[in-house]
Design a protein around this nucleic acid. Sequence first.
DNA 1: CCTGGCACTCACCGGGCACGAGTGCCAGAG
DNA 2: CTCTGGCACTCGTGCCCGGTGAGTGCCAGG
Lengths: 338, 338
Amino acid sequence: MLSERRLEVLRAIVQDYVGTEEPVGSKALTERHRLGVSPATVRNDMAALEDEGFIAQPHTSAGRIPTDKGYRLFVDKLAGVKPMSSPERRAIQNFLDGAVDLDDVVGRTVRLLAQLTRQVAVVQYPSLTRSTVRHVELLPLAPARVMLVLITDTGRVEQRMVDCPTPVTEDSLADLRARLNSRVVGRRFADVPQLVQDLPESFEQEDRGTVSTVLATLLETLVEETEERLMIGGTANLTRFVHDFPLTIRPVLEALEEQVVLLKLLGEAKDSGMTVRIGHENVHEGLTATSVVAVGYGSGDEAVAKLGVVGPTRMDYPGTMGAVRAVARYVGQILAES
Amino acid sequence: MLSERRLEVLRAIVQDYVGTEEPVGSKALTERHRLGVSPATVRNDMAALEDEGFIAQPHTSAGRIPTDKGYRLFVDKLAGVKPMSSPERRAIQNFLDGAVDLDDVVGRTVRLLAQLTRQVAVVQYPSLTRSTVRHVELLPLAPARVMLVLITDTGRVEQRMVDCPTPVTEDSLADLRARLNSRVVGRRFADVPQLVQDLPESFEQEDRGTVSTVLATLLETLVEETEERLMIGGTANLTRFVHDFPLTIRPVLEALEEQVVLLKLLGEAKDSGMTVRIGHENVHEGLTATSVVAVGYGSGDEAVAKLGVVGPTRMDYPGTMGAVRAVARYVGQILAES
DNA sequence: CCTGGCACTCACCGGGCACGAGTGCCAGAG
DNA sequence: CTCTGGCACTCGTGCCCGGTGAGTGCCAGG
């Protein structure tokens, strides 16, 4: 096990490296931190830390930089979550309060997160299957064409066109709407398939085709993997590390364009509590030089979706985690109000 | 006026430079194109072209590269629009046909454009004010809370929460819905404010508050500048020019993050026909090293929105214009069908 | 176990130099 | 008047080279 002081040295290295973006040497360390020992001692500690794989040198005559393993230790044991200041919290709340609909909430959240963390922000829309049904609407648009609208308690609205096998009367549509809603309103979307299973049987023969078609479309809309949506922002922040540029940024941008990759990334995060994945802990190839900080958010205690940021492994973890947590909390509140 | 051959030289320079991304010299030109004259002659022509400001040399002992003015001449006089091949056209159509709703159409269009042109794609959602009303729906969610849903003929759906001053009965809501729809369905959204102006007066005193509130929200939704939405994609393509990297890419990414900037950019494009803005023709500072190719699209003959791509001034104009035009055409078709 | 001293390594920087692509100009031919 | 080949010139690029300094590892002594 590493001694107390060695951990302290690791912490100092991480902090300095995150601040300066340059390998940190023993002398600089003793000058900037009150470690109470000489550079030579620090050098020995550094050698030990390097043996354990927590830090590494880019080349022989350079200082040390933390490895993924070093950041992991830092995040788990050495650093807390830095809470937001109260002016910051007020600003977050004010900014999010101005949203007019869910798209706006998500859009504002993305911009806010990107700005606070100066990194790439990713926000998932509240999952349909994890939300509850507020209302299901059926609108006749043409004799044999109906628009299906799903509304969740989190304000998410999905619509689908349904082409019915036979023309539908206004009355039978109203009937279907009423019966459908009485069954599903207030229930979780995940339970809807079960709840409507036997619905077609209770209708007259002539309407059954329509009912089945509508229900089929409804169920399609709920398919996991398809129903997930997300928004990203702050990609311009990627240009802040001008060092290892093209090589790093290219695969990251490509990964961010792939919704599937991002959804998987967020999916891997724990449902409750904050998840930090550092460097190679991310299985996706393009993201092995980045860290992901993600957390679930929701209107109640249960998470309905996740949000987070993607940044270089060299990031301010306490600050980022603080911002992510605070934003998630306020988004949850906003959703609960709406 | 420039002689025929000099124009030919300019065309050759543009083509070679776009292909190789390197300044092109007189010798290379005569080797790669059948100009029928010697390098020395070409040099004289190049000197003339440089005097006129169509090309420039990065430094004394280098070849020439086209200026914005050179590209402008190339686009206007020397190059046509390169039509898509029929397999490409089929692929476009197939890909777009799979969309389930408008979000999906726009999302697919963005990905398609980005892939075809290997540049950043920008697609605007059909403008509300330029679309016509298919249906306006009012859903009671709570005693004094109504959800307003607008549906356009292009499949766009906008929803807003309305908090009413007094509780609303199901009946009066149905009444409002019916009267509202009878006035506006089939009309252009732009005309809606006028069409509903005197609607509150025709209601009982007790309902007027609700009616006014609903209408106010409806009108707010239609405010230009606010109602515009767009989607972008293919930002990873920015990393293809690794040359002048950080300096170029940074401001472009920043500009792309600003919806306002992009909307203005598309807004500046002509309503009909294709618009190409080259380099400094773009007023926005971050985009002076890029060109924008934009075109309107719509379900009928009138454009309901625009789409386009943003790329380096050194782009394959004929190919890009061909792709943009083709995609716009097919998106229009898809919208007309839905 | 900590410390100061010391020799060593090596990335970085700036200058000097050769190379070569590309140019402008000019005189002569068609 | 236009085109061509020749020629001197420019200047960015790549390379080598030595000096500098930050940082290291090791060791002997407290």
